[in-house]
Design a binder for these strands. Sequence first.
DNA 1: GGGCATTGCGCAATGC
DNA 2: TGCATTGCGCAATGCC
Lengths: 200, 200
Amino acid sequence: MSDSRVSSVIQEWAYSSQAHTQTLNPTTTNHAGSTSQLTQMDMIPYSQSQGLVRGGTDDRVTEQMMGLSYLPYTSSSCLSNSSSTGTTNHHQGHPNTQQDFSSFLLPSLRAPVNKRSISKDSAEYRLRRERNNIAVRKSRDKARRRILLTQQRAQHLQEENQKLQMRIGQLTQELDTLKHILSQRHLHGAEEGVAGESNI
Amino acid sequence: MSDSRVSSVIQEWAYSSQAHTQTLNPTTTNHAGSTSQLTQMDMIPYSQSQGLVRGGTDDRVTEQMMGLSYLPYTSSSCLSNSSSTGTTNHHQGHPNTQQDFSSFLLPSLRAPVNKRSISKDSAEYRLRRERNNIAVRKSRDKARRRILLTQQRAQHLQEENQKLQMRIGQLTQELDTLKHILSQRHLHGAEEGVAGESNI
DNA sequence: GGGCATTGCGCAATGC
DNA sequence: TGCATTGCGCAATGCC
């Protein structure tokens, strides 16, 4: 769940440093910076934060936190950037004047040199994209259903809560009544006892 | 809330017919077709479906429906399409061989002829995009918080429900006890009454 | 009308 | 390897 913007930006930058030639702004890395504020909440995967809503008692999340996370990443302009075929428009903003420093980066951050030349035109790329798009739609439908179910569950629980509260009120009142009767009868019984004795 | 793909596709197509020159597939309109299946659920605006979870009892939404909505829209390839500056990559897929039929469309569906020539390079465009991006992040943060709160609410309600159930159990038992005592005392009182009379 | 808010979508990174 | 999840930007549309 780690913030993908850092790596993606670096990677994109690395990409651009080897093949792209766009006019971009050197301010993009702020993306990662400003968003890292809302990590904690965002980082909770659905399977954990929602799954079966189990876990115990420490699911509480400080809701107060995370504000302003939507402030402009950099308010940079991010003007265009058509990659090999002008298809992508994401993670723009890295100066083309950038030299290839990828060799100084950790291997994990280095640009995937010739990652099978993701041609973006290749049928394989389109196939993968299309499959991912399907998966994305599927996943989002699932998420929507999950959210809706949670809302309905909360609604149902609230209604049930009210009924239970009312039931408790009834029981309590009934209990009070019986207690009162009992105490009365107790007194009455004592009086009767006295009266009986005086009758003899 | 209506499916935006229809109009967007038409609009994009109209756009392309007047200025763009890409090689695209004429299969895009299917997008609208396949997604219209999951409307009902998707169409519920947060302000209504979640807002203050008020409204009454008709919030129920047929959860059974909507499945397979993630099936491929068209499995079309949607190869690239760098608009004026190669920035966008959405709603692609409209043959450049298309002629301008926009004049035959209803005014509301017609392409916004020279909608101030959304140059995509203009500072105004970037300004609007950036503002929208900020709004989108803000809105999504809000949605995430809302979802989390709903989950926590459901969790809390469930716990409270269990406590209430236990309380009801206690009260019921106590009530039974008192009722038993009362019935016993009733018998006892009757016996005492008989015993007293026979004593006379 | 102008601006922010929502929402569906595709892309890319990453998780599993 | 492939599907699932998630953040992001774009565009359309809703809502003042």
